[in-house]
């Protein structure tokens, strides 16, 4: 296809806050979209120079290779503790953590709960793909009932393996949580909503309102052994009834 672009205006390009390093994520993985939107908001708000991010251990361990802001890579589960450390000594900067479900809702559960309970003025981005992506598709605390993974080959048996944890609802109960929402990145409409949520979170952070927490229900085509399109479809049909997208806690003044 040949189209003249001379007479046209640029309406969408990769944000400058993303580096040119090609991402290592599997084709169609939601991590890439989530990174991009997060960086896009930082770009648009003009806060690049004042933002410090924390990457987890998980597939997004290399987030600092892509996000063109000052970053730290934390130990498995401890991103919110590291983010606490950063925010406490740099209270006027914007700080976010970016964590998977194994990181945030299994090994890092204590840090997650206490970070939110202290109402740390940070944004926590929580990628829930119901599986351990990086280590090859093992069961996560968020894996659905009956879900087959490499460590629940006969399906998750809730009687012995626990029920899929709704971390976001759990932390929404804490007074320190200011704004808590569940989003996704699988459609243009969902991406637009996520963008608004991220923006609202950074605005709240500027006003030192407390912890903002955004769960992104996402796919893991490799771990789920599906094509990207199938995985998004499966996510809508199976994840969404349990992890239903939408706001969970919205302060009056944000409504």
């Amino acid at each position: 296809m040949e189209t003249k672009i001379d007479s046209m205006e640029l309406v969408y390009a990769k944000p400058e806050t993303l580096t040119d390093t090609p991402m290592h994520y599997c084709p169609g993985c939601g991590h890439g979209v989530a990174h991009k939107i997060l960086m896009e908001v930082i770009d648009e708000m003009g806060i690049t120079e004042n933002t410090i991010g924390v990457a987890p251990v998980g597939c997004s361990v290399f987030a600092y290779m892509y996000m063109n802001v000052d970053m730290q890579e934390a130990a498995h589960g401890r991103a919110s503790a590291a983010a606490t450390g950063i925010k406490r000594v740099l209270p006027d900067k914007f700080v976010f953590s970016y964590q998977g479900d194994g990181d945030l809702a299994a090994i890092g559960t204590a840090e997650t709960i206490h970070t939110v309970n202290r109402g740390e003025n940070i944004l926590m981005v929580f990628i829930n793909n119901g599986i351990y992506g990086m280590t090859g598709g093992q069961m996560a605390p968020t894996s659905l009932a009956g879900m087959k993974t490499s460590t629940s080959p006969y399906g998750r048996d809730c009687a012995t393996m626990g029920t899929p944890i709704k971390m976001t609802e759990l932390i929404a109960n804490l007074p320190g949580a200011y704004y808590v929402t569940r989003q996704s990145v699988h459609t243009p409409a969902a991406v637009r909503k996520l963008k608004k949520a991220i923006k609202a979170s950074f605005e709240a952070q500027k006003q030192k309102k407390g912890t903002c927490f955004i769960e992104i229900v996402s796919n893991c085509p490799s771990g789920w052994k599906m094509t990207p399109l199938e995985s998004n479809d499966w996510m809508e049909k199976n994840m969404f009834p349990y992890y239903t997208p939408g706001d969970i806690k919205v302060p009056q003044e944000m409504k």
């Binding site: 046209m8 390009a13 699988h186």
Partner: peptide
């Protein structure tokens, strides 16, 4: 918007 690899640039009249 949905491209995970930010591979798409869009122009409009």
């Amino acid at each position: 918007l949905v491209c995970p690899d930010s591979a798409i640039t869009v122009y409009r009249q």
